[in-house]
């Protein structure tokens, strides 16, 4: 691959990683998965920097990536300690537990409704057929699926 082609391919992959990480950060509700999404975004940026560094023949990009790794390690240490404390306080990793965080005296404001959980109907195993086939009892099956 020519240098220009290689640079373009690296930038595409870096951009894709940033896009995927951004999506995960905006959409997921688990604190740890949000943290992972941020790390994925950092990986994308690092890849682009390395590609530019090679293209321009300048090692500054690689040094910058080393700094990014150092800052990411700090962020991981402090972030995970915070997550641990938050999880101990409310016994869940859900960010929605913190969306009504506010000062005392300020009226509550919930900016996003938590989506409702839909419980799928469970399928219970049935016995093999023996003797006369019983009539299907719809009422009984209705209750059965919700045991």
């Amino acid at each position: 691959m020519s240098e220009l082609e290689l640079l373009q391919a690296y930038l595409v992959v870096g951009g894709l990683l940033v896009a995927i990480g951004l999506t995960g950060f905006l959409v997921r509700r688990n604190l740890l998965v949000m943290f992972l999404s941020v790390e994925i975004m950092l990986q994308g940026v690092s890849l682009s920097l390395v590609a530019w560094s090679r293209y321009h023949g300048d090692l500054g990009g690689q040094v910058f990536v080393l700094m990014i790794i150092a800052v990411a390690a700090c962020e991981a240490g402090i972030g995970l300690a915070l997550v641990l404390m938050l999880a101990r306080r409310v016994h869940t990793l859900d960010v929605a537990a913190w969306q009504d965080l506010r000062e005392s005296g300020v009226p509550p404001h919930v900016d996003r409704r938590i989506p409702e959980a839909e419980v799928p109907a469970e399928r219970w195993p049935t016995l093999p057929v023996a003797g006369v086939v019983p009539e299907p009892n719809e009422e009984e099956e209705f209750y059965r699926s919700r045991v």
Binding site: V12, G15, A19, I20, L22, L26, V27, P115
Partner: peptide, 24 residues
Amino acid sequence: VVYDRLSWGDFPRVASPLLAIGMV
């Protein structure tokens, strides 16, 4: 757990992949 099986509501789930991938 439920907050892993459900992400935020439909709007962020539809809009953010389309916007992010569209930008790239």
